[in-house]
């Protein structure tokens, strides 16, 4: 099995007619994702390489039964695009767009929680989600992931996720689902949401969690692992040598007022029984040994 998305997930791309949306939308379809629609109020009735374009997400849902959306809209339009998706009946909204103002994020996160509690938001500023062999929504290169499990991956960083997928694949280890939660201050889906889903998923036997400096999401995840996880978790935290007070590429990757350091996160995770690698390769090796020890491959 997989979490959040699978072969039955039908996806509408908000921004499919733009260059990025088209590129990744078509790539996702080539991978096998059910890309059933795109939206653009000015181009309703046209198509992108056979994928029908609708005026709104609501129209697309009515016509195609889409349950997920993938947003490639430029940052100024993301707030409206997220609400349009939720109001249109979408259950799983993935926002790839980078550079969304923090106040917009905080607003639509809370608005969804209140008015659309059944809707899951992933991102913004995330690489998306892939359940290898079934569904790939976003910008992850599908070919670097091996299908089948037993590992689930959750990460704040895109490239580190790719690296983890690739290293596991070269060792012959598959992945149930790989979730990129993104590097922004208010991610729609948290580490804990993913850990909880992986814990409940029978095919996921172990979880790889890649964090980074800033905020306290890793510490909260550590507390969750200690209290509620039976499956082994392996982790890596990026940014051990990052200078305080500087945003390291991601809007949320900042050590401020001595809080959010990699050392504190690693300590919390280790105290919760998580195996923590000092670099991504070491974390990959730790996961390989966990999987081999248990005879999962």
């Amino acid at each position: 099995m997989s979490i959040f998305v699978d072969e039955n997930t039908k996806v509408v791309y908000q921004g499919l007619t733009g260059s990025q949306g088209r590129f990744y939308g078509l790539r996702n379809r080539d991978y096998g994702t059910q890309v059933v629609a795109g939206t653009n109020p000015k181009k309703a009735g046209t198509d992108v390489d056979g994928i029908p374009i609708f005026a709104s997400v609501g129209d697309a849902v009515d016509a195609t039964g889409a349950t997920a959306s993938c947003i490639f809209i430029p940052a100024p339009g993301v707030r409206d695009a997220v609400m349009e998706a939720a109001e249109g009946g979408i259950e799983f909204i993935v926002v790839i767009t980078e550079g969304v103002p923090a106040h917009d994020e905080a607003w639509f996160y809370n608005k969804l929680k209140r008015d659309f509690p059944g809707v899951r938001l992933l991102g913004p500023n995330c690489p998306g989600i892939i359940s290898p062999g079934k569904c790939n929504i976003g910008i992850t290169a599908g070919e670097i992931a091996k299908e089948g499990g037993p590992v689930g991956i959750v990460s704040r960083s895109g490239t580190l996720t790719y690296q983890a997928l690739y290293e596991l694949k070269t060792q012959g280890i598959g992945v149930t689902t790989c979730v990129g939660i993104g590097g922004d201050p208010v991610p729609g889906t948290s580490f804990i949401d993913c850990l909880e889903a992986f814990e409940a998923d029978p095919e996921t036997k172990a979880v790889m969690m890649f964090g980074e400096i800033g905020g306290s999401a890793e510490e909260e995840a550590a507390a969750f692992v200690a209290s509620s996880m039976t499956k082994p978790v392996v982790s890596y935290i990026a940014g051990m040598t990052a200078p305080p007070g500087r945003k390291m590429g991601h809007a949320g990757a900042i050590v401020s007022g001595g809080k959010g350091t990699a050392a504190a996160k690693m300590e919390a995770l280790e105290a919760a029984g998580v195996k923590v690698g000092r670099n991504p390769t070491e974390a990959g090796e730790l996961m390989v040994s966990v999987v081999r020890e248990h005879g999962w491959v």
Binding site: R156, T159, A238, M240
Partner: peptide
């Protein structure tokens, strides 16, 4: 020089290690 914020941060860490 690295591609991706996570990998770039990770690169600093590994150089330090």
């Amino acid at each position: 020089i690295a591609n991706g914020a996570g990998l770039a941060m990770s690169t600093l860490d590994v150089v330090n290690q």
